[in-house]
Simulated scan of single mutants.
Amino acid sequence: MKKFGLFIVGGIAALVLLSQVGPMVGLIISLAILYFAYKQFTKSDSTGGKILWGIVGLIALSASISNVPAILGIVAAYILYVVYKKWNREKTTVVTESSDPFTNFEKQWAELNK
């Protein structure tokens, strides 16, 4: 039953991730342009250059803000990662004295030799 729940959660997360691929790409591109505009703004010595890179940075910032729903895609990717890790987790078995086959064998052998 636990695997079924993980399957359902993983399926929903995969659908959300697929629906958010476009905004995620847009967010990455707009953030890259914003970073480039910031670097050029700090390098520029002229007032005209600073104004130009400031305008480019504001346009890139507004494009980044419009792609904020892409954060849902990032969250969905993380949920898929967690589901994958839980799905492939190996069950740890605790070996107790009563479940160890060699201990039981030794006890039975000792009883046979009496």
Results as ranks from 00 to 15, higher is better:
71 I>F: 11
25 V>G: 01
50 K>S: 01
62 S>V: 14
98 S>V: 07
56 V>W: 03
26 G>V: 05
41 F>P: 06
22 G>I: 00
49 G>S: 12
69 P>K: 02
97 E>A: 15
91 K>Q: 04
88 N>Y: 09
15 L>R: 07
16 V>I: 06
45 D>F: 03
101 P>A: 07
36 F>P: 00
80 L>I: 15
71 I>P: 11
73 G>V: 03
12 I>T: 01
87 W>F: 13
64 S>Q: 05
90 E>K: 15
114 K>F: 05
42 T>D: 08
90 E>N: 13
111 E>G: 07
113 N>I: 11
82 V>E: 15
61 L>E: 09
83 V>F: 06
63 A>F: 13
9 V>R: 06
36 F>M: 13
25 V>D: 00
104 N>H: 02
42 T>P: 02
24 M>R: 00
20 Q>D: 01
61 L>M: 13
20 Q>K: 01
1 M>H: 04
81 Y>R: 09
92 T>I: 11
23 P>G: 02
39 K>D: 14
20 Q>E: 03
49 G>C: 04
54 G>W: 04
57 G>L: 01
61 L>V: 10
104 N>K: 09
31 L>G: 08
59 I>E: 02
12 I>S: 03
101 P>Q: 08
57 G>N: 02
110 A>D: 11
78 Y>E: 10
39 K>G: 02
67 N>W: 00
8 I>H: 04
99 S>E: 07
87 W>S: 13
19 S>M: 10
97 E>G: 13
88 N>A: 08
80 L>D: 05
66 S>M: 05
18 L>T: 11
102 F>I: 06
75 V>S: 07
108 Q>I: 09
18 L>K: 03
87 W>P: 04
69 P>N: 06
73 G>Q: 10
55 I>W: 03
43 K>D: 06
21 V>E: 05
70 A>N: 00
80 L>G: 12
111 E>K: 15
77 A>Q: 01
8 I>Y: 05
33 I>W: 08
1 M>N: 10
106 E>A: 13
4 F>M: 10
20 Q>L: 04
86 K>T: 00
88 N>K: 10
48 G>C: 00
15 L>P: 05
52 L>R: 01
34 L>W: 13
45 D>P: 02
85 K>V: 12
41 F>W: 02
77 A>F: 06
76 A>D: 06
8 I>F: 04
33 I>H: 12
79 I>L: 07
82 V>D: 13
89 R>E: 15
92 T>P: 03
79 I>D: 00
102 F>M: 11
96 T>S: 15
59 I>Y: 03
111 E>V: 13
66 S>L: 10
73 G>S: 10
87 W>R: 07
67 N>H: 01
40 Q>P: 02
14 A>G: 14
86 K>H: 00
51 I>W: 07
9 V>D: 08
18 L>Q: 09
54 G>E: 11
85 K>T: 12
3 K>R: 15
104 N>S: 09
101 P>M: 10
12 I>Q: 00
36 F>K: 14
109 W>K: 10
34 L>N: 06
78 Y>D: 09
26 G>S: 13
78 Y>W: 12
3 K>A: 14
81 Y>T: 12
37 A>I: 11
64 S>M: 12
1 M>W: 03
109 W>R: 13
81 Y>G: 14
58 L>A: 15
79 I>H: 03
2 K>N: 11
110 A>G: 08
50 K>Q: 02
107 K>Y: 02
53 W>Y: 15
32 A>D: 10
75 V>A: 12
11 G>W: 09
69 P>A: 05
60 A>C: 09
95 V>Y: 06
37 A>L: 08
19 S>N: 06
